[in-house]
């Protein structure tokens, strides 16, 4: 791979605040192929600051693919062109010299834009608060082996637990549906013995909370799973649909 400087043109969504209309603004910048996508934006922001211009607001925290903050739609794909890769783990070597890159925030009614590329994802927190938990007795630490869990169950639950709540599934869905996220949470917790107590109420409450937040419904496009940086499979939605139907059919009370 070459180390040569790349010249790129960015078209970035700029929006002063929640009520501003917003539009794409173009910037020319240079980048090194080894830079991460966010480092490329950092450099551009330094340039903007030195010209006394407003830097581009974007979310980020861990920059190692685990916090789920670095939300942006790059060339029409949440987290950009690479599968199973968050924006912070995307490198400029995935682009070519002379490329034009479009950068936009997640677009969903349930994720209002705060500024530029930053959105408010607290709708996910409220969905989690409605049922994404298990209750455990307090007191001394329980024996690690007190509740045996089969290897297959543990592996499956762990795979669903990999969801980092980034919202790429919502951003990618033509209906802005949160089914993959909610499915991952419900599947994760309902696979565990500890998750059985609140199992039916969890499915009903989390679905009701997701609907209250204004996310769309699933029409089985499958876009969410292909956008997910943690490769949560569509199977999560199958589990959610079954958990919901099961809770409805059995009268719902735990």
């Amino acid at each position: 791979m070459s180390d040569e400087t790349m010249r790129i043109t960015l078209h970035v969504w700029r929006q002063k605040g929640p009520n501003d209309r917003g539009s794409l603004q173009s910037y020319k910048t240079e980048a090194n192929p080894h830079m991460s996508f966010l480092e490329m934006l950092d450099v551009l922001n330094e340039q903007l600051l030195s010209k006394n211009e407003d830097p581009i607001a974007f979310d980020h925290d861990c920059r190692e693919g685990i916090c789920g903050m670095c939300s942006m739609v790059i060339n029409g794909r949440p987290h950009g062109p690479r599968n199973a890769t968050t924006t912070c783990q995307l490198h400029m070597r995935s682009f070519k010299d002379g490329d034009e890159i479009y950068i936009e925030p997640w677009q969903a009614k349930a994720f209002p834009i705060i500024k530029d590329l930053m959105v408010d994802r607290s709708a996910f927190d409220r969905v989690i608060a409605s049922g994404g938990y298990i209750s455990v007795g307090t007191g001394g630490a329980p024996d690690a082996n007190a509740i045996p869990i089969g290897k297959k169950q543990a592996d499956e639950a762990f795979d669903y637990a990999a969801c980092i709540g980034c919202g790429a599934c919502v951003a990618a869905c033509p209906n802005a549906s949160a089914m993959l996220f909610v499915g991952a949470k419900v599947a994760h917790l309902s696979k565990f013995p500890q998750g059985q107590v609140e199992r039916k109420g969890r499915a009903l409450n989390m679905v009701a909370a997701m609907d209250t937040e204004g996310f769309g419904a699933c029409t089985n496009h499958g876009e969410c799973a292909s956008a997910c940086p943690k490769e949560i499979p569509l199977e999560a939605i199958m589990v959610l649909n079954r958990e919901y139907a099961r809770a409805q059919l059995s009268g719902g009370e735990d």
Binding site: V73, G76, Y102
Partner: peptide, 8 residues
Amino acid sequence: AAGLKTQT
């Protein structure tokens, strides 16, 4: 503004 690039 730039459209979604649907995959599936």
